[in-house]
Design a binder for these strands. Sequence first.
DNA 1: AAATCAAATAGGTAAATTACCTAAATGAAT
DNA 2: ATTCATTTAGGTAATTTACCTATTTGATTT
Lengths: 217, 217
Amino acid sequence: MEVIKIILVDDHTLFRDGIKSILDDEEHISVIEEAADAQMLFDKLQNQHPDMVITDISLPDMTGIEIASKINKLYPDIKILILSMHNNEEFILSALKAGANGYLSKDIESAELLEAIHSVMNGKIYFNKEISQTIINNYRGGDHVDSKSSANINLTDREIEVVKLVGEGFINKEIADKLCISIRTVDAHKSHIMQKLGLKSTVDLVKYAIKNKLIDL
Amino acid sequence: MEVIKIILVDDHTLFRDGIKSILDDEEHISVIEEAADAQMLFDKLQNQHPDMVITDISLPDMTGIEIASKINKLYPDIKILILSMHNNEEFILSALKAGANGYLSKDIESAELLEAIHSVMNGKIYFNKEISQTIINNYRGGDHVDSKSSANINLTDREIEVVKLVGEGFINKEIADKLCISIRTVDAHKSHIMQKLGLKSTVDLVKYAIKNKLIDL
DNA sequence: AAATCAAATAGGTAAATTACCTAAATGAAT
DNA sequence: ATTCATTTAGGTAATTTACCTATTTGATTT
């Protein structure tokens, strides 16, 4: 069996070290590089050719989903395993769409990480939760995603703009001024958004924006 | 040198496994137990007697600060090392006040974790950032803290109640009804809070509540 | 080409909500 | 005894939102 070459991406050094320590015990796995953010990762990918990139879902400069999408475009043969703190189904589907080969919660045991790595190297797709192959087939091979269409698949560009501004604390009038539209239009956008997402208040919108990383906390 | 017995506490199994893998390579360190939450930890502490508890700052049922405070009260000889995702100075001071012996960001390298463990076992206090011994002396030995007085040291009980409700999406009238006070009183509380914290809008209050874990996202 | 539909745009008015002024009661601290 | 923070509110003006309807535009379908 060939040695599986891996690049680890996570902004928390201790977490990287932990994973590295687990993987270093494996004969057939070699962590050839580490990166703390997407910038470092893509720098290293210009000279190094790993079999797999294991990345955290949230990095300082890019989300794991965006990274997956970019890797999938630039280096389609590199497998991508995404690690996440939370089991957000929305993110899981976005990850699939972005071309990730696996999505794991950090709640898993190290044995499952190893199993996931080997499954993915054997051409499988690995998720902690059972997602039917049909769904997978529907989502894979689609066009590439960017941050806007990933988690916020239901919202239009304009609506996302509005959600962001709401999340940043601007009131309708201020948003109207910023976007050079009428207050009523902002009002209408907010109504549409809340209806689409099943939200009830501006505070819900703010939380949605935070959850979906449209704004920073 | 005696073997240092450690209990690891973190709700993410993979992270625990990673740390365990790092520590297992050390001769003088033994991870005798693991716990995913505070409940499990205190259950195990009834039968096990570690030298040190290493805990994440945020757990499902309790904060690391609260855990430190409780351990300090029940088992004052057990050393406490808190791991955190963020370098929030407010939390660092709260941790000190709660009796923690060290506070580390997850950004550190594994070597620094080992250094911190040994420092703490030798009676020192270990922090990634330089905090002067004077501050440490001022804060240590003080009374024990609970969640309310830790991160929200400037806010009164009533104000925290209000911030929580604002964060949960209730408007002033609803908050007034819930607390059985006048809308004006809620209004006044909000004004005071915003002035104290230097915030400008209800949205800022929501973010404050999330940041300081007064509400869940 | 015509019809249909989603998306983005607003106006008007009533209703809801907040902002800001002041101020009193209470209890703790100096 | 006095000062001070905390909690409590009333009144009014100003702001802000909610909800109704409705037009334009571009894309898709028939």
